Computed example of a mutant assay.
Amino acid sequence: MTSTARAVVLLSGGLDSATCLAIARDMGFETYALSVAYGQRHAAELTASKRVAEALGAREHRLARVNLGQFGGSALTDPGIAVPVDEENTGIPVTYVPARNTVMLSIALAWAEVLGANDIFVGVNAVDYSGYPDCRPEFIQAFETMANLATKVGVEGARLRIHAPLIELTKADIIRRGIALGVDYGLTVTCYQADDGGRACGRCEACRLRAAGFEAAGVPDPTPYQAHAH
Rank of each mutant, 00 (worst) to 15 (best):
G123I: 05
F121P: 04
A126L: 00
M104F: 12
L149P: 13
S106L: 03
A108D: 05
T90Q: 11
E113H: 09
R177G: 11
G186P: 08
D78V: 11
T145W: 12
T102Y: 09
I179L: 14
I120Y: 00
I175H: 04
A112T: 00
V94A: 14
A147L: 00
A142I: 08
R177S: 14
V97G: 01
D128Y: 02
Y129W: 14
D86Q: 13
I175T: 02
V114Q: 15
P165D: 08
I81R: 13
V183Q: 10
L149R: 14
I107F: 03
E88K: 13
K152G: 07
N101L: 04
I175Y: 05
G182I: 11
C135W: 02
A147I: 04
L160R: 07
G186Q: 05
P98R: 15
R159L: 12
Y132S: 02
I174S: 07
R177D: 13
R177Q: 14
F139G: 02
A126G: 06
N125K: 06
R161G: 00
P165S: 09
A158D: 15
G116S: 08
A99W: 13
I167K: 00
L149D: 12
F121Y: 13
P98E: 13
A110N: 10
P93C: 06
R159E: 11
D173L: 08
W111V: 15
Q141A: 14
T102Q: 11
N101Y: 07
G178W: 10
A150N: 03
G157V: 08
G80E: 14
G116E: 07
E144A: 14
G182S: 09
T170S: 13
